[in-house]
């Protein structure tokens, strides 16, 4: 399911790009046309990484192991990183609100580290990767039920992100 969503996101990105570049957009300006079709997509852009590959993988309660869909996302991340060897990344580990503060920082650290270890196993140089854990301090979904908690149990790969360890 997740893979289908990702594929759809890629297609949408491509369609949007194609429309813009071939028609000059709805306003018919056309002055910034740089080429035709999908060739105009900058696959090294951070936007492409975010939208087409996906920066986030999710975890089960109290777990830091990677699911099948997480591994698919991380394979794509590794491919992109290997194709863009000048980029470094920060991996943020997060937890949901249903744990204590210190444990959640430790858990977020395990999750970020789990992602790092996998990317390294796929050929990404360890020196390009740093990690940080926010524990339960930075939720993206604010409700108090499983639909939000499952989104908050995450690791986020940020290209050229801030400082980590």
């Amino acid at each position: 399911m997740k893979y289908l969503i990702k594929t759809a996101a890629v297609l949408m990105l491509l369609v949007t790009a194609a429309c813009t570049s071939t028609t000059g957009g709805l306003f018919g300006g056309g002055s910034d046309i740089r080429g035709a079709g999908i060739g105009s997509i900058d696959e090294t852009s951070l936007e492409y990484f975010e939208a087409a590959i996906g920066s986030t993988v999710l975890f089960e309660v109290n777990q830091s192991s990677l699911s099948g869909s997480s591994i698919a996302t991380l394979n794509a991340q590794a491919g992109w990183l290997n194709a863009n060897p000048t980029m470094s990344i920060l991996i943020e580990g997060h937890a949901d609100e249903r744990g204590t503060r210190e444990y959640n920082i430790a858990l977020g650290s395990k999750r970020a580290s789990s992602v790092r270890d996998y990317l390294v196993s796929q050929g990404v140089a360890d020196a390009r990767i740093s990690i940080v854990s926010y524990g339960k301090e930075r939720p993206i979904a604010v409700c108090s039920n499983t639909s939000c908690w499952s989104q908050n149990r995450r690791a986020v790969t940020i290209v050229n992100g801030g400082m980590g360890v």
Binding site: S64, E102, I105, A106, S109, K110, A112, S113, S114, R116, D117, I131, V132, S133, V165
Partner: peptide, 26 residues
């Protein structure tokens, strides 16, 4: 090294006890 958190003083004030998380291990 790593990430540091959960500090407390020793009763004599001479030491800190805390957690350090290095490469995912706390």
């Amino acid at each position: 090294p790593g990430m540091g958190f959960a500090p407390r003083f020793s009763p004599d004030g001479g030491k800190i006890v805390m957690s350090i998380s290095e490469r995912g291990n706390t």
